[in-house]
């Protein structure tokens, strides 16, 4: 709880913009039944997200990075309540979404939209793209006439760089980049305040990645959107994010401004991650020092005691196994969860 107040008092003076989303101590656990379990056997808990706290301000982009299986997507889905929340708060514009019933949550969905990883799989193959983009409109504004819906769909298609005459085509007739534009159009058609992008470009070509990222950034500027941008590609995240949050095994390791975290990563895990980013210059690339992290990600069913990163950390000491490091302010708005941070 101390960390709760700390975050509120310390983070706000530097920012004048409105706080949209405030996540506190969010926990998402999954029940794991061992093989051949009896119906009355107690399940084991897989701690996919274990006490994550962060804030999102109006118009900013929060990048979420971490290796696969660290709970990035689970975090995103729990924030928009597509997964049951075990504990913690998700405060959206002053209201806690976590205890809301599905019905009450549905009213908030028009402000929070999502873009998915696999562009083609996120579009229903039996619907035309006109129907796909119109669906959120029809759901939240059932009174709109058919002509109005069609007009807004056409307008949205132009905004994301699709020709409006493609309205009657089916998803399989488009390329991956175009499909992702359709996904973006569907997310934007309700004029939401926040969009969660769950690895929106990792299934695309590098050249198309740039197009989609730039489109997202220009739309963000135009519509004043806030983004939560999940990715495992650090250079993409650096390009789009205002702030970056590093996750490891369902825990926050470090949160800082984008430039800050790249210039001076303070957590040993972040340092290793950033040292692994390839530099597009063979001379520098060859001479750069890469910090290797040994071993595999520990099992989230049975996470290490104390600091979850200690099993692979080059700086781990006895204290790390005993006491879990709090997320503290190292300098300015730079937060880090490590006993021995730089």
């Amino acid at each position: 709880m101390t960390e709760h107040t700390q975050a509120d008092t310390l983070a706000s003076p530097t920012r004048t913009r409105e706080k949209l989303l405030s996540v506190r101590d969010l926990k998402v656990y999954f029940d794991i039944f061992p093989k051949g379990a009896m119906p009355w056997t107690k399940p084991r808990k897989l701690k996919a997200v274990n006490g994550v706290s962060f804030d999102l301000y109006e118009g900013e982009t929060l990048g979420v990075v971490g290796e696969s299986g660290c709970g990035k997507s689970t975090l995103a889905r729990a924030v928009i309540r597509m997964l049951p929340v075990e504990g913690g708060e998700v405060v959206w514009l002053g209201q806690d979404l976590a205890p809301l019933k599905d019905k009450a949550m549905r009213n908030h969905r028009k402000d929070i939209q999502m873009i998915f990883q696999d562009p083609l799989a996120s579009l229903n193959p039996r619907m035309t793209i006109g129907q796909i983009i119109a669906e959120p409109l029809e759901t939240h504004y059932p009174d709109l006439s058919r002509a109005e819906v069609k007009e807004r769909v056409a307008e949205m298609m132009k905004t994301v760089g699709l020709l409006p005459n493609q309205i009657n085509r089916y998803p399989h007739e488009f390329s991956g980049g175009q499909c992702q534009r359709i996904g973006i159009a569907r997310a934007l058609v309700l004029k939401p305040k926040m969009i969660i992008c769950d690895e929106p470009v990792s299934a695309l070509d590098v050249s198309i990645q740039a197009q989609v990222i730039n489109l997202l950034m220009s739309l963000q500027k135009k519509m004043g959107l806030s983004l939560i941008f999940i990715a495992h590609d650090l250079s993409v995240v650096k390009h789009i994010s205002t702030r970056i949050m590093v996750l490891y095994l369902g825990n926050v390791m470090e949160v800082a401004d984008s430039a800050d975290i790249y210039r001076q990563p303070r957590h040993p895990y972040t340092q290793a991650l950033i040292s692994a980013v390839p530099i597009p210059d063979p001379k520098i690339e060859r001479n750069k020092e890469v910090i290797l992290i040994e071993g595999d990600l520990p099992s989230p069913i049975n996470p290490p005691s104390g600091c979850v990163f200690r099993t692979r950390c080059p700086r781990a000491e006895a204290k790390c196994a005993e006491q879990k490091p709090e997320l503290i302010f190292a300098q300015g708005t730079h937060q880090v969860a490590c006993h021995f941070h730089d």
Partner: peptide
């Protein structure tokens, strides 16, 4: 696409 439909309410 089912997830997307749930997410849009």
């Amino acid at each position: 696409y089912i997830e997307a439909a749930i997410a849009s309410g």
